[in-house]
Amino acid sequence: MEKVPALLSLCMETVIKEIIYGDHFLHNIFELPLDLIDCLLMRLPPLALQKLQEDMPSGQCRGDESINAFSRDGRKRKRYGDFNTVWRTLFYSRWPEGVAQIQSMEQLTMRPIKGSETDYNDDWQQLYWEAHLQNCLDEAAEIALLPSFDGCIGEITIPDILMKSIGYEVEMGYKSSEVSKLSYHCRNFGRYARKLRLQNVLCVAETCELLRDSRLQSVVLRRIKSKEHVNGACRLLNLNSHTLLSLEFVHCRLSSHAINAIFNSLYTEGIQTHGIQYLSIKASSILENNAVTIPSGVLSFLLSGRYTFYAFNAIIAS
């Protein structure tokens, strides 16, 4: 005989759907008894947890902060539990391999990057949405690379498997056409991005606009070759020049003019030094009129940085 769901489970499912797909009764959720709030937190999918945390009344807990409330027996207890612990559980349930997939460059090179938030970061909400956004960008790049693609990057539809991983069933959503677009994920989760890797097809002005709220510390650029991609990369790097610490080029083919433009974009206006601490150019080629000289932009970059580790595996060809 099929097991009948408990009344509590049915109620929880109804509340979760209301959080994800509705906007009218969120304030009522905060009036639930504390025990039910704690139980609900452990069942919320990522998108519901995000909405609940964002809409929490002023003065209540944020992130892993909490305020104390007195229970009936007079003992203090944490109100609404520990959000950061829930985010950590959600992260490992989706990516069992842990944070290895988003390791910072200082871990890969065994050299510490000073000032980086990522090396000892325990903000699991930030780590979760950063990894999710990277998954979305990777999927979008695969679609944008298809010869048949002729549209806006932001209009690309996120695959159902990624939508379900954050708790959103497309067929149930009233705003599925909006929530399923890459633009929604960049707009809502871009502010959590600290490290991203971007294929050339995403290095365009539109992507820079989509990621305008990001504060990138580490960027990996792949297969940058055309003028459009160079311009997009320059704009993205310049927008994040005040936070960028690590930069890597992989399988790129750049002219001396392009490489000069890219390195010049790393300077913050009015400041003659940059903040890059790790620079890597792998399996790439730089086209230079004089193959025995280093492009002026690269030379200036090398002379104006501090605490920088360089790893070059590039061919300078005429």
Rank of each mutant, 00 (worst) to 15 (best):
K3G: 03
P5Q: 04
L7C: 07
K17C: 14
I19A: 06
F25N: 14
L34D: 09
L36A: 11
L40C: 08
L47G: 03
Q50C: 10
K51R: 14
D55I: 03
P57Y: 00
S58A: 11
G59R: 03
R62L: 11
D64E: 14
S66R: 07
A69N: 03
A69Y: 03
F70N: 11
G74M: 12
R75F: 14
K78W: 08
Y80H: 09
Y80T: 06
D82V: 05
D82M: 06
R88S: 07
T89P: 01
S93I: 02
W95F: 08
M105D: 10
L108I: 10
P112L: 08
S116M: 01
A131W: 04
H132C: 04
D138G: 10
A141G: 08
A144K: 14
L145G: 09
L146E: 13
L146D: 12
P147Q: 01
S148G: 05
D150E: 13
T157M: 08
L162D: 05
M163D: 05
K164H: 09
G167M: 02
E169C: 09
E169D: 10
E171I: 06
K175F: 13
E178A: 10
C186A: 06
N188E: 15
R191A: 11
L198W: 01
A205S: 14
E209R: 09
L210C: 01
S214W: 06
L216C: 12
L216M: 15
V219I: 15
V219R: 04
V219T: 09
L221F: 14
R222H: 13
R223V: 08
C234H: 06
C234P: 05
R235K: 14
H242A: 15
L247I: 02
F249I: 07
V250S: 11
H251E: 14
C252L: 08
R253S: 15
L254Q: 06
S255P: 03
I259G: 03
S265E: 03
L266E: 01
Y267W: 04
Y267H: 08
H274M: 00
Y278D: 00
I294W: 07
V298M: 12
S300L: 06
T308E: 03
Y310P: 00
A311I: 02
F312W: 11
A314D: 06
S318V: 08
